Simulated scan of single mutants.
Amino acid sequence: GKLLRSWHGHDRGAYGALFTADGRHAVTGSGDYTIKLWDLDSFREVRRFEGHSGTVYEIALSADGKRLASVSLDGTARIWDMDTGNQIAEFDPGTGPIYAVAFAADGTLLTGGYDRT
């Protein structure tokens, strides 16, 4: 229950957060529409993932740690390359804000949105 470390790095609140499997990095999604990869030794930003036009609500890593998925109030789900920060794919189902995202073991992407789908 003891706070070990905190740091500030987004202009607005962080909504999604996760650790990489190796425990060396953390990833955060924010109300400032960005996703950031952090080095946990230095607590410095390593990479920034930009493209959403709304709050990034949740993020997920693929089982192999090579892809990052994000969902946003802008109604899109995006897949990113963890090594480069480049966007690989964007999905806009046209159903409104998306709040939840997860990868299945086989790489299938699952999302949940405001429209209850």
Rank of each mutant, 00 (worst) to 15 (best):
G1H: 15
G1Q: 15
G1M: 15
G1V: 15
K2C: 13
K2F: 12
K2Y: 12
L3V: 15
L3Q: 14
R5K: 15
R5M: 11
S6M: 11
W7I: 11
H8N: 14
G9W: 03
H10Q: 10
D11T: 14
R12S: 14
A14G: 11
A14E: 08
A14Q: 08
Y15W: 12
G16Y: 03
A17W: 05
A17K: 01
L18N: 09
L18G: 09
L18F: 00
F19L: 15
T20L: 09
T20E: 09
A21K: 14
D22K: 03
R24H: 12
R24T: 14
H25K: 14
H25P: 02
H25W: 02
V27T: 08
V27W: 01
V27K: 02
G29Q: 02
S30Y: 01
D32T: 08
T34R: 07
T34L: 02
I35W: 04
I35N: 04
K36Q: 13
K36S: 11
K36E: 10
L37Y: 06
L37W: 00
L37D: 06
W38C: 01
W38V: 03
D39L: 05
D41Q: 11
F43C: 10
R44I: 00
E45L: 02
R47Y: 02
R47M: 10
R47I: 04
R48G: 14
R48M: 13
E50N: 11
E50C: 10
E50G: 12
G51W: 01
G51M: 06
G51Y: 00
H52L: 02
H52M: 02
S53N: 13
G54D: 03
T55G: 04
V56P: 05
V56N: 07
V56C: 07
Y57A: 10
E58H: 13
A60G: 09
L61P: 08
A63Q: 11
A63D: 10
D64A: 01
R67P: 04
V71E: 03
L73Q: 13
L73E: 15
L73H: 13
L73I: 15
G75Q: 06
G75L: 05
T76S: 09
T76K: 05
A77D: 05
A77M: 06
R78P: 01
R78S: 00
R78Q: 01
R78C: 06
I79W: 08
W80V: 05
D81A: 10
D81N: 11
M82V: 09
M82E: 07
D83S: 12
D83V: 07
G85T: 07
G85I: 02
G85P: 07
G85F: 06
N86C: 11
E90H: 04
F91D: 05
F91M: 08
F91G: 07
F91E: 08
D92E: 11
D92V: 06
D92N: 12
P93K: 03
P93G: 12
P93W: 00
P93D: 11
P93T: 04
T95E: 15
T95I: 15
G96D: 01
P97T: 15
P97C: 14
P97V: 13
Y99E: 13
Y99H: 12
Y99L: 12
V101C: 07
V101L: 05
V101P: 09
A102N: 11
F103R: 08
F103W: 06
A105G: 12
A105W: 11
A105R: 15
D106Q: 06
G107P: 02
T108F: 03
L109F: 03
L109A: 08
G113F: 02
Y114M: 14
Y114W: 13
Y114F: 13
D115T: 09
R116W: 00
